[in-house]
């Protein structure tokens, strides 16, 4: 297994390992090879590296065409350049036709695009992709999870959207922790005063919040949601059933992401109060920590939201 650090190197490492294993994978890049940390992949497998130039719409449809012949193309770029600029291509030529194309969208969230500013931060991608039938949405929290998510995506027949941030996110999962097929991994199980659910690179903050709350006598469960709008949310519902307060934390707009998904699960299955911490405006340039804190993702704020909502 190739060495990697963070979600981007993990993506490239998994793609490389898939090619080594003989999978018919291709990397389709709209001038994003280096941004995807995939230069080594391109050097090792030049025949599996497809350069489309700065042309995301073309790249997505080229991948669609390749998939009709049995190839497994991975299109890697920034989340919004795929899901917004080439969103219709993803819908009409991949989703509708159920083609076996995989998408890796990086710079997701304000912390994913950080210093680049709003043009290169994307907090709308899940809202869009979740409205496309046939797509699966994977939100790995760190590099180790991304590596496994890419490997699993390659084995699925049909479109998969993988969401990643900057690649500088903290590592939370051990290398060999599986990418949960249940869509949920419980990271802290201190109690059921509240359940805090997050997706993606804010997981370390949620875990820290659970520890802070414990010190205050509030015992919560903290869990990572790694598959959104999946086919079988039974395990997520099982965890949600233990509490009267669910708090969601996500580096995405408050509409259409994790909070929307969990609210839907709650209203359709077992009504429970859902408090959402997410973006409600465009962000700005800055260090990931500062941006995340501003949006309410600091452990202290998550902690305060839980305590206040519980009336403590």
């Amino acid at each position: 297994m190739a060495k990697f650090k963070g979600v981007r190197e993990a993506f490239a490492a998994a793609l490389t390992d898939l090619a080594v294993e003989g999978k018919d994978v291709y990397g389709v890049f709209p001038d994003s090879l280096s941004a995807m940390r995939a230069i080594a992949f391109g050097e090792k497998f030049p025949e599996r590296y497809v350069e489309c130039g700065i042309a995301e719409q073309c790249a997505v449809d080229v991948a669609a065409g390749m998939a009709t012949t049995g190839a497994i193309p991975f299109v890697g770029s920034y989340a919004g350049f795929l899901t917004m600029r080439a969103g219709e291509q993803m819908r009409t030529f991949v989703g509708y036709t159920e083609l076996n194309v995989k998408f890796a969208g990086f710079n997701a969230g304000c912390m994913g695009g950080e210093r680049e500013g709003v043009t290169h931060q994307f907090y709308e991608d899940i809202a869009f992709v979740s409205s496309l039938p046939n797509f699966k949405i994977f939100t790995p929290a760190d590099g180790n999870q991304m590596y496994h998510a890419v490997k699993i995506a390659a084995d699925i027949v049909g479109p998969v959207y993988l969401r990643g941030g900057s690649g500088k996110e903290p590592t939370v999962f051990p290398e060999d922790a599986p990418f949960s097929p249940d869509g949920i991994t419980v990271c802290k199980d201190y109690g059921t005063d509240a359940v805090i659910l997050s997706c993606g690179h804010v997981l370390d903050r949620v875990i820290a919040a659970a520890d802070l709350l414990k010190a205050q006598g509030i015992n919560v469960t903290a869990a990572d949601i790694n598959i959104l709008y999946g086919d079988n949310p039974a395990k997520i519902l099982e965890v949600m059933a233990k509490t009267n307060l669910v708090v969601t934390v996500e580096d995405h707009n408050i509409n259409g992401g994790l909070g929307s998904y969990i609210s839907r699960l709650a209203t359709e299955n077992r009504p429970v109060r859902v408090k959402r911490i997410a973006l409600e405006d465009y962000s700005e340039s800055g260090a990931a920590k500062d941006l995340g804190d501003k949006e309410g993702f600091s452990p202290e704020n998550i902690c305060a939201v839980v305590a206040k909502t519980l009336g403590k």
Binding site: Q57, G70, F93
Partner: peptide, 22 residues
């Protein structure tokens, strides 16, 4: 494939042709 949203067919054709080349 699907068709109708204009401007996209040639990209798809290119993808198929590239795969045939490979």
């Amino acid at each position: 494939c699907s068709a109708g949203s204009l401007g996209q067919g040639l990209s798809v054709a290119n993808g198929i042709a590239l795969a045939f080349k490979k």
